[in-house]
């Protein structure tokens, strides 16, 4: 840690030491352990027993695993675009003025997961919940759809759309970064609002959007856990059993840590593939723009 003009900057890397050590211990080591455990039978009570690729073969035949994987992908496919679209719309709408409105948009995001889940459990109560009562007041008598698989999935998507504060703030900042001159120019040339959006706003914000989408895919694997545990308990009929919930059940309820580790790795690989695909699309899109 000797200070010195040219090498001084590089010495700053030492500041990252606690972060790197903690990350290695809390994420790196567990991830590697999971890879190892995936090939063993392990119940945390007795020593792990090597079983080769048995768990992966079993995953192949486990209908609930495929259901959970499908549910997770479906959720990401529904929630991520919707969240981004709503957040983008709000950011464009509120990028000048209206701090009160911005606070209102951000507020649901600060509600702790468990309180938020309970709140929605109440909102969605099929007979006495405020939503059902409001629908009844405007003449919609049948609120039983909330108990159908698609109703439950839709409800979970809806409740994550309300918690888009982080995405919203990043998009807000990104929009502020855009040079106002471009907009003025576009207006002078007589471009309508739609043209401005498609010719100026969208292309310039696309990289941010793509990065947020990649991040949101990862986040969607976490945000589903508490609502699925508290609101739907994975039902009706496994319609909201997402991968994290199924991993939790296998690992912590039935102590099949090896099997759950195998699932964890499949989940990680699927996430990585989805993120990579998105970044690849972004790169292709950029290249085509530059060409």
């Amino acid at each position: 840690m000797k200070p010195g003009a040219p090498r001084g900057r590089e010495a700053m890397v030492w500041l990252a030491a606690p972060f790197l050590v903690a990350a290695a211990l809390l994420v790196g080591l567990p991830a590697l352990l999971a890879l190892g455990l995936a090939f063993t039978e392990y119940d945390a009570l007795s020593a792990p027993r090597f079983v080769g690729v048995d768990h992966f073969l079993r995953l192949w035949d486990d209908p609930l695993f495929w259901t959970a994987l499908g549910n997770s992908l479906l959720f990401a496919a529904m929630a991520v675009p919707l969240r981004l679209a709503v957040a983008l719309g709000l950011a464009l709408l509120l990028h000048r003025g209206g701090r009160l409105a911005r606070s209102a948009v951000f507020l649901p995001t600060v509600v702790p997961d468990i309180a938020y889940a309970l709140l929605w459990l109440w909102l969605l109560n099929p007979l006495y919940g405020p939503l059902a009562l409001a629908l009844k007041a405007v003449g919609v008598a049948d609120t039983g759809w909330l108990l159908t698989p698609w109703g439950a999935r839709g409800a979970l998507v809806a409740l994550t759309v309300f918690q888009l504060g982080e995405v919203f703030v990043v998009l807000l900042a990104a929009r502020r970064e855009l040079p106002e001159e471009l907009y003025e120019l576009c207006e002078l040339e007589g471009g309508g609002a739609l043209t401005v959006f498609s010719k100026v706003t969208l292309p310039l914000m696309a990289p941010t959007l793509a990065l947020l989408a990649a991040r949101d895919v990862v986040v969607s694997l976490q945000t589903t856990f508490v609502p699925a545990l508290v609101i739907t308990q994975g039902g009706p009929r496994y319609a909201t059993t997402f991968l994290p919930l199924y991993i939790y059940q296998n690992g912590f309820e039935y102590l099949r840590l090896g099997y759950a580790s195998a699932m964890t790795w499949v989940m990680f690989l699927v996430t990585a593939a989805m993120v990579a695909a998105q970044l690849w699309v972004l790169r292709g899109w950029r290249a085509s723009k530059e060409a």
Partner: peptide, 18 residues
């Protein structure tokens, strides 16, 4: 780290702390 879902390291992080 951004790309690792927190849910992916639950189990084994628990094992590490154990």
């Amino acid at each position: 780290l951004v790309m690792v879902p927190a849910t992916a390291v639950w189990l084994t992080r628990f094992a590490v702390f154990k």
